[in-house]
């Protein structure tokens, strides 16, 4: 049973539970709940992971910033046009080490989502990210990006302002930045909109995060002219963290509790913090040239097609 349906059933069972005092009936309901959850969590499909990656109750970039870093000063604007609320960034302290943190910003409810455009940046968002990355390079600060976006926004203004150029520019520039870059896919890694902030020395993924060329809905509608076949598409697309790890694109995965992360998940922050500190220590040992050379090679080897 798809996880979403399982969760709907759990909700109904919880309602029944709240209406009965009968001990035997309560036990039966609890057993049923456990059976459904166990079954659902043990057989997560790729589309279930897409569902978990998109869940609004999942921690967002602001939760990670608040819980991993001791200080954070948000900086605004691309100095060209405006401030894009779909991307947030600024200077933070990782146990005393100054870092630049940038991430896609999704809302937890409709009102917040309208404000941050559901985490879909316009060109101004990518240009703000690039400005902050260049600033990080100037002051020798490592860059940490949190990836969580359905993709770059497809609209009239975003095209007028050069969405394609903005993404392309980030890809080109990020490849040569002389400071360490670590990207963490915390939810949805959607298309070029995610890539434009994740050309990095290390790509980490949370267990239920996904990273793909396009949303499964978009994929299905392009290839089969039928967006409702998204579930099927997700299985084909190899978009889970395990798939990405196997393909050598994700370098490290972080386990999540059963049923995915929620607002009560605390251990993820400490685990990420420890990992970030250790990884930055390692990356700091590389001179600038080696760092950039290794980053170049990381992407250079993806898509080998020499004749056998």
């Amino acid at each position: 049973m798809p996880l979403k349906e399982a969760e709907d059933q759990i909700r109904l069972l919880d309602e029944r539970l709240s209406k009965t005092e009968d001990r035997e009936e309560r036990q039966a309901i609890l057993d049923e709940k456990n059976r459904i959850l166990k079954d659902a969590y043990e057989n997560l499909t790729s589309y279930d992971r897409v569902y978990l990656a998109r869940k609004p109750t999942r921690p967002g970039v602001r939760d990670y910033i608040k819980n991993i870093f001791s200080e954070f000063y948000e900086l605004h604007g691309d100095r060209l046009m405006r401030d894009d609320p779909a991307v947030i960034g600024g200077i933070a302290s990782l146990d005393g080490i100054a870092v630049t943190v940038i991430g896609h910003c999704k809302g937890k409810n409709l009102e917040e989502n309208i404000k941050c455009n559901f985490g879909m940046p316009n060109p101004e968002g990518y240009r703000k990210a690039l400005r902050l990355m260049k600033q990080a390079e100037k002051f020798n600060r490592p860059i940490i990006t949190f990836i969580d976006t359905p993709g770059a926004y497809p609209g009239i203004e975003s095209e007028e302002h050069g969405q394609g150029e903005a993404i392309a520019r980030n890809l080109l520039e990020m490849g040569s930045l002389q400071v360490p870059i670590i990207s963490i896919v915390i939810g949805e890694g959607g298309s070029g909109g995610a890539l434009a902030m994740s050309v990095a020395d290390r790509i980490w993924m949370l267990e239920n995060a996904v990273y793909s060329i396009l949303s499964p809905e978009g994929f299905a509608s392009i290839l089969w002219k039928d967006a409702s076949r998204a579930r099927e598409a997700a299985e084909l697309m190899k978009l889970t963290s395990f798939d990405l790890y196997q393909m050598g694109i994700a370098d490290r995965l972080f386990a999540e509790p059963k049923g995915g992360l929620n607002q009560n998940s605390r251990s993820i922050y400490q685990r990420l913090k420890t990992a970030l500190k250790a990884e930055l220590e390692q990356l700091a040992k590389l001179n600038k040239r080696t760092l950039i050379e290794q980053r170049y090679k990381k992407y250079r080897r993806i898509g080998d097609c020499s004749p056998k």
């Binding site: 392309a168 890809l171 490849g175 070029g192 890539l195 050309v199 793909s212 697309m237 978009l239 992407y299």
Partner: peptide, 10 residues
């Protein structure tokens, strides 16, 4: 899939 996406960075 994702391999194509990564060609953009490459």
């Amino acid at each position: 899939g994702i391999i194509s996406l990564m060609q953009m960075a490459k």
